[in-house]
Design a protein around this nucleic acid. Structure first.
Length: 109
DNA sequence: CCTGTGACGTGTC
DNA sequence: CGACACGCCACAG
């Protein structure tokens, strides 16, 4: 049941993301020791948001692109939530992504 | 067991 | 900037 451990970590880390901050799938995957398994993080997010109530909207890809917005109830929901937290969205991308980027392996160290 | 698929990341052309 | 390839891992069939 190691898989549950993986999900659990993804959920916790994502929940720990401060408001107004965002992180990338790769960052979480790296923090979990699965650098190459960023896909699994994203896949886990699917259940995370729907079952665990995890703020998956704070998780974007390495470009700061809202790659998963299409997976929400409504495509714009992800952007709405981010903007509500003070994050500006431009062309489905996070504005000033670097400054708002929250790396669990560094901030949560 | 093998194959296809995926909310990714990095590299190459 | 778009397209493709490889890696990486979990899951469905």
């Amino acid at each position: 049941m190691n898989k549950e451990n993986f999900f659990n970590d993804v959920y916790e880390v994502t929940k720990l993301i401060p408001e107004g901050r965002v992180t990338s799938y790769g960052a979480i995957a790296k923090y979990l020791g699965r650098t190459g398994s960023a896909r699994m993080v994203g896949w886990a997010m699917n259940q995370a948001f729907s079952e665990k109530g995890v703020p998956a909207h704070r998780v974007v890809n390495r470009n700061g692109l809202l790659s998963g917005k299409a997976h929400f109830s409504e495509p714009d929901m992800m952007q709405q939530l981010l903007e509500a937290e003070g994050i500006e969205i431009k062309d489905d991308k996070v504005v000033d992504f670097q400054s708002k980027f929250w790396d669990p392996s560094k901030e949560l160290l």
